[in-house]
């Protein structure tokens, strides 16, 4: 069976009777990808679960206002990215002692996570990724694990393609250095 196209989903969403089915198809198509993208940013399964649900609800509530000047795919990724970064920001604010920086916060999550397999090299790579600044972390994750094209990343992050590429190069270099040292 061929995968349903984004425009078919948007069209169905406009039809009252097919709206629920459209949501189901939309989720079937994107849930794993979006969850993995969010998990890569948030690390904790529990947080990622919350944010993934929020993202789909948001996508659904806004699908009628979706302007179609980017593809549905990049739009959903953009919402997922923004929601995840907001989530980290909010969560860190909630902490009693906000002295912990983002890197420590994420490393803590990584070491306390239940749903994880502790293969050494995978963990090491994650630790290296956590050390990157947000933008490089996003770009590296999307490229290395999810194989998203530079052009699409540029659209998702609203950067230039050149900007994405150079960020990726910097991230790659830093990670290679980290792996060499540790």
């Amino acid at each position: 069976m061929q995968e349903i196209t984004d425009s078919e989903i948007i069209l169905m969403a406009k039809d009252e009777q097919k709206a629920n089915e459209a949501l189901r198809l939309l989720m079937r198509k994107y849930k794993v990808r979006i969850y993995n993208h969010i998990r890569g940013i948030l690390i904790s399964h529990e947080d990622s679960d919350d944010v993934t649900q929020d993202v789909f609800i948001k996508v659904w509530q806004n699908i009628s206002t979706f302007r179609g000047d980017s593809s549905l795919f990049t739009w959903i990724y953009r919402i997922a990215t923004n929601e995840s970064l907001n989530h980290i920001r909010k969560n860190r604010k909630k902490k009693l002692f906000a002295s912990e920086n983002q890197e420590q916060y994420l490393l803590n999550l990584l070491s306390n996570e239940t749903y994880i397999n502790s293969e050494e090299i995978q963990m090491k790579l994650q630790k290296a990724i956590i050390k990157l600044p947000d933008q490089q972390r996003l770009i590296f994750n999307m490229r290395y694990f999810d194989h998203i094209k530079f052009k699409e990343m540029a659209e998702i992050l609203e950067l230039t393609e050149g900007g994405v590429k150079s960020n990726y190069h910097i991230a790659e270099k830093k990670i290679k250095e980290f792996l060499k040292e540790h």
């Binding site: 989720m27 079937r28 969850y35 998990r39 993934t52 649900q53």
Partner: peptide, 22 residues
């Protein structure tokens, strides 16, 4: 090198249901 992250059994089906419920 993949991601080390795993999910609970049947999580993605459950995810779909949770979104629908909300």
């Amino acid at each position: 090198i993949g991601r080390p992250y795993t999910t609970p059994d049947g999580y993605f089906d459950q995810l779909e249901k949770s979104v629908f419920n909300q």
